[in-house]
Amino acid sequence: MAAGFSRAQVDAVAALANLDLTDDEVALFAIQLGNILDYAVQVQNIDTTGVPPTASVVTAVAERDDVVMPSLDRAAALANAPDGHPDAGLFKVPRVIG
């Protein structure tokens, strides 16, 4: 599919990724993502019949006791927020519903 990576497709992916791309970026990514996927498409020629996917190389499940441990206090957790309100203990964001 890659050779025909269209600007409309770039726009659709950018919306999913929450990225406001400029027109120049859309044009550039349409070409570059097309080229990268043209190259990556070679994986589809490899026979993987009956081969399970690897999501992680970890084989042993790390278990621990389910006990309460110390965690960051609220002021520290809010200290890096662009619009944190330590008194209220909240992150402030723009309105969600217009």
């Binding site: 990556a40 993987t48 081969v51 999501a55």
Partner: peptide, 22 residues
């Protein structure tokens, strides 16, 4: 985002994970 998106997941991401096993 593209390789995880509906319609392309199996062809790219899942396929890559299988080749990762190989």
């Amino acid at each position: 985002t593209y390789v995880l998106s509906a319609g392309y997941y199996d062809a790219y991401y899942l396929k890559a994970q299988k080749v990762r096993t190989l």
